[in-house]
Design a protein around this nucleic acid. Structure first.
Lengths: 363, 363
DNA sequence: TCGCATTGCTAATCCGATTTAGCAAACCGA
DNA sequence: TCGGTTTGCTAAATCGGATTAGCAATGCGA
């Protein structure tokens, strides 16, 4: 059926040279090893004629490099978030001639181990371990066999792995600035977390903690006092609805900072129930840029999770990591024996999507 | 840094046997080739102690099989549709110990060729070529080097490749039956396509044509006449809104069959504008089960695209295809010389998601 | 004309498994 | 006791390249 692959030996035979010579020419080392122009041309011509393509499996066996990266995430099907992350990683990898193995653990550590094993068995050159929602994860021991990067996750224990994360603190600052820029200084309520530094949902949500820090920092510096805050146990629309209802029974907010778009969806409904218009009566700013944000009426102004960029960045960092492999930790200098090097943390900016849910404050 | 991989040779040495024997035992062929119990146990024990894992790259070189399949789609980041498809494929593959290479062409034929090449270079055992929206595609020549399956796509030219598609005709029937079962026989309007068999949007949407066939078939058999139909050039909310508005200016529908959920979203808005309640005044049934469907109020009853199942099925079909490789087309009997075998078309059922947008007809 | 570089290419080995061919020892019947 | 089986294992080839070591031919100075 399929006509046997063209091999280097075929090219060599057609060109009338040894496989060694053909290999040398095709790997570009012909010049430095003084292969004559004539021979070089013959090999190149033969390779082109036969449409020769090196067998990466073979190269992988010999050189140990398969031009392949493993991408393991806890889940990829939930919303399109993961899709964008993978897309970013895919493109960045492809630009360097690398392919991606995709794996999904569904949060099962055993499955995770199996997947990492399977990838290791296939000699991946590097690994990306990704979480769909920013959180701390336990780094499996299997890692460390190859260069690796944590994506959207921080190591639970001290680990030398670098990580790539959205810049949530700065996102908090930006959300707050959106309101300040529109002139809001009174009646700003937080929905999802706050108002105090410690008022975050249980479960140690990285996003909650960091967004809150950024928000409080900017509002504090501007001398603006947060009018109120409501922690939501779960960041789902129904909780946003309930929290906003409760809020509206005791106050007349002028602006809401919702901690994510699903909460904002619930808040919209509560505002509607109370006959309040967005953004005329109440401005709303939120986080994530969940697909729903652009569907809502009025369209929601939100600080976007840069999934695509996160994926790209992870690959960039991974390549840097792969480059550093030969020159082992020794020359890292400051790192002492037995001390675990701390992985660098890379923050990817979260852009503001200005839409229709914020209006200028009426004095 | 990383302690060199454990190889078969290591296991053999520890067990005190030759690599050949170790290989025989570990591949399960020890029995038939009369390896003694004693030796078998020693090898097994050594392998377990060393945590030996065969290097798949090496096996790939020797046997030509890499336990890997390539999944190439036009885009994966748009909505979570693709995510589910990949998830299904991923799980089905993993169950057989296979991994997936993911690639994305963004509709660029050159990129597609490059990706298929790259996968071929890595000796994938099979390929899945997927489209995000059901359509006909031109099958690149590069295919055919390995067993392959079309997913959510039909070949533009005659091709021996099997394809896996959602059963849209039956979906059309089901949507119509949802309304019939609720007692609707009057005032049923179609939004997106229809009412005539030929009234479909330009671009040759497979879904439009087939859904319409199913709808017309069931309504026709029940002796129910379609009250009206509106083709939408693009199946987006704004088109659904416009079409439904136009409809409402001249008629009082009792039920709407929207050709997808985004159209239904627009229709909801138009109905609201005219002061009509869903489902009290007008029942709505739709297609796709886009994530938005569960967010809409009232929740939308829709016939779901079974992305996850499509992904799984594609892998199943691919494995069947891979199984048939040795026994070439010859014994297919009826296929004559030079005649291209037609690929089988597999239809995956589309389940109805009964939610809140359909009410019993009031006589 | 000899010795030594330099030029230009190739033979041989290796990566880590699978697979084919085959060998030594034990056994068996005549 | 000898030829032929059977038993139980191993040497060697193979997959398709990369890499190391080395070889023949030419050039050049002394």
């Amino acid at each position: 059926m399929s006509p046997r692959r063209v091999t280097l030996a075929d090219v060599a035979k057609i060109a009338g040279v040894s496989p060694t010579t053909a290999s040398l020419v095709l790997s570009g080392r012909g010049r430095e090893l003084r292969i004559s122009q004539d021979v070089e041309q013959r090999v190149l011509k033969a390779a082109a004629e036969l449409q020769y393509r090196p067998n990466i499996v073979s190269v992988g066996l010999r050189t140990g490099t398969t031009r392949t990266i493993g991408f393991v995430s806890d889940t990829i099907a939930t919303s399109r978030l993961a899709g964008d992350m993978i897309k970013g990683a895919l493109e960045a990898a492809r630009e360097r001639g690398f392919m991606l193995f995709i794996g999904e653990t569904e949060g099962d550590p055993e499955l995770e181990r199996l997947l990492l094993q399977a990838m290791h068995d296939r000699q991946v050159d590097g690994l990306i371990l990704a979480a769909m929602y920013t959180r701390t994860i336990r780094v499996p021991k299997v890692m460390g066999a190859a260069p690796a990067v944590l994506l959207n996750a921080l190591p639970k224990q001290r680990s030398p792995l670098p990580s790539v994360l959205p810049d949530e603190v700065e996102a908090g600052r930006r959300a707050a600035r959106v309101l300040l820029d529109a002139g809001h200084r009174e009646g700003i309520h937080l929905v999802g977390a706050g108002p105090g530094r410690r008022d975050v949902p249980p479960g140690g949500s990285v996003a909650a903690v960091e967004r809150l820090i950024g928000i409080r920092e900017v509002l504090g510096e501007a001398g603006v006092k947060v009018a109120g805050g409501h922690v939501c146990a779960d960041w789902q629309p129904e909780y946003g609805l309930a929290a906003t209802r409760a809020l509206l029974e005791g106050a007349r907010p002028r602006a809401l900072i919702c901690f994510n778009d699903r909460i904002a969806l619930g808040a919209y409904q509560a505002l509607d129930d109370f006959g309040l218009k967005v953004p005329g009566d109440v401005s709303v700013v939120s986080f994530d840029d969940h697909p729903i944000a652009a569907w809502m009426r009025p369209k929601l102004t939100t600080v976007a999770l840069p999934h695509y960029e996160l994926g790209r960045k992870a690959v960039d960092v991974l390549f840097a990591e792969m480059g550093r492999d030969g020159d082992d930790a020794v020359q890292e200098g400051a790192v002492r024996e037995g001390e675990v090097r701390e992985g660098e943390v890379h923050r990817v900016p979260m852009p503001v999507r200005l839409r229709e849910s914020v209006a200028a404050a009426t004095p």
